[in-house]
């Protein structure tokens, strides 16, 4: 047996930073697309070439040209301008719905997962009651009671997503609470509230954020669906779903009325899905293994 000298430190050379993980690229791409859409939606009054509700009788079902790149609809309104304003409504409704649902779901899920026992039973069973109803039916019921409109659509979507997000928060809280640093923090004098706010919530939020961004994509579709059925945003206010409904009848003569809002929905959904998928991969340790 030959003796081998102890390995000496040697120069520590950092390897050049490797390319960002796929997960990061997903998120960056998603955020970039969403950013462009959001800026366009917010700046709609500035960049829209025409008013969204301005009727131009001579341009009824007019084909795309330089003044109207996306063409005009049944009433001769500029489709590009309406897509920009519609995007505004759709993004606003879906993001508000998911934000409201998340803000309510997080504390409930946190309490259910952390305290367990009766607290858990009370919260979980209550939320399960919402979960057993089909989403669309629940939304329609809401609208039947409160009347149609963007705000009601947002509220209905928020109620549908509340139990889903609370469940995700509850289960990730259960996992985090088992960590010894939670017990340790209590022994180091932190009360329940402090432990929840400083240790449990920040570590348990990851999966909820992933779920919320995935649900944003569905919320956008749901809002479009409700508006398509005439239950969401009410005309003449433009919304992407409502535009789909308008374009349906003239699909053959004037496909642009249908196609452009459709593409806008697809792109917006895609951006949310990319963000959600990227975040999911980056939170899931198996996803980042090289």
């Amino acid at each position: 047996m030959t003796t081998i000298a102890p390995p000496t430190g040697g120069p520590i050379v950092r390897r050049p930073r490797s390319k960002p993980h796929t997960s990061t690229r997903f998120v960056i791409t998603g955020v970039a697309i969403l950013g462009v859409l959001a800026v366009a939606a917010i700046a709609a009054p500035l960049i829209a070439p025409h008013g969204p509700e301005t009727v131009e009788v001579s341009r009824v079902l007019g084909a795309p040209n330089l003044q109207h790149p996306f063409g005009s609809d049944v009433l001769g309104r500029d489709v590009l301008s309406r897509v920009l304003y519609g995007l505004r409504t759709s993004l606003l409704v879906s993001l508000t719905a998911v934000t409201v649902a998340t803000v309510i779901a997080v504390p409930f899920g946190l309490a259910a997962g952390y305290f367990g026992g009766r607290v858990d039973t009370a919260i979980s069973r209550t939320l399960d009651m919402i979960l057993v109803l089909p989403a669309m039916l629940l939304a329609i019921t809401f609208i039947a009671i409160l009347g149609p409109g963007s705000a009601v659509a947002a509220l209905a979507i928020a109620v549908i997503y509340l139990p889903i997000l609370a469940r995700v928060m509850r289960s990730s809280t259960l996992v985090i609470t088992r960590n010894e640093y939670v017990l340790g923090a209590r022994a180091r004098g932190a009360g329940h509230l402090r432990v929840l706010v400083h240790h449990v919530a920040p570590n348990a939020l990851g999966p909820v954020i992933v779920q919320a961004s995935v649900l944003s994509a569905f919320a956008l579709q749901l809002e479009a669906g409700l508006s398509f059925l005439g239950l969401g945003t009410q005309p003449p206010t433009p919304s992407l779903g409502g535009m789909l409904a308008d374009g349906r009848d003239v699909l053959i003569q004037a496909p642009w009325v249908e196609i452009f809002p459709g593409i806008a929905i697809v792109i917006a959904v895609l951006s949310f899905t990319l963000i959600g998928e990227g975040l999911r991969r980056s939170f899931d340790p198996r996803g980042v293994a090289e």
Partner: peptide, 10 residues
Amino acid sequence: ASTETSTGAP
């Protein structure tokens, strides 16, 4: 093997 075989990396 590292995923990249850039020259100069130890």
